[in-house]
Design a protein around this nucleic acid. Sequence first.
DNA 1: CCGGATGTTCACCT
DNA 2: GAGGTGAACATCCG
Length: 265
Amino acid sequence: MPELIEVEAYRALAERAALDRPITGVEAPDPWYLKAGLTVDALSFLIGSRFSAANRRGKLLSLETVGRDGSPGPVLGLRFGMSGRLLVDGTPGVASLRYASNEPLERYDRFGVTFADGGHLRMRDPRRLGGVQLDPSEAALGHDAASITLGQLSRALVGSRAPLKARLMDQARVAGVGNLIADEVLWRAGLSPARAAGGLTPAEVRRLHRHLRGALHEMTSRGGSHTGDLMDQRRPGGVCPRDGQPLRRDTVGGRTTWWCPAHQR
DNA sequence: CCGGATGTTCACCT
DNA sequence: GAGGTGAACATCCG
């Protein structure tokens, strides 16, 4: 579920509801969820601290902390994998969830903190592909897809013989684009996912940039990465919503890719 | 039972 | 070394 759009919703939720609340407890029932050598002990600094800012770069959510005296503490980095959600006081950052039906969902809570007022911030992640780390390196991430400029996008693609879609999803080049957004953007831009990334004309790069920004904006207002025009047709027998031609299913950049050979060139 | 799933990482290849 | 590919990770669903 989480691509840039969902993580931005999580960021907004944390900013709106989790800042400046004194932390009184850490919930880490799943040590495996703590990454890069992080331990429960190393998280004890959180007690008495509070979150002071919520930032996002690509799919990484960074919560800045300050101690009792207001001095800066470590940054808490949250990654949500394929199925992770953020909840504050039980309110999720996004509406729908794949595993929304039955079952007590609390069993999927992998990490959280409790606040002095009894509320809490929690990560709920059935597949456990997300994780928590301290002071995550943002240097490993490219420009954020939501704010990337035309020039930055152009430089992220130039010289690469990798498939265009693979390059778009390379978080070190462009941060935030996942499988669904990539397919949607390329479909809108009329570009084949298999094209060599560095082989685009300047006009095509401009088109890609315009549709990247446009698709993110539109899908955000619709409510998520799964709200693209192509989404309903990502299935056997699916047809292009634009021209009615049968969609093709390929693997590009290691991911299932649905696209329209009739208008994506 | 099997294949696939909105992500990241790591071993391995050219 | 750069750059790219595919499997593995863990769990659930159709």
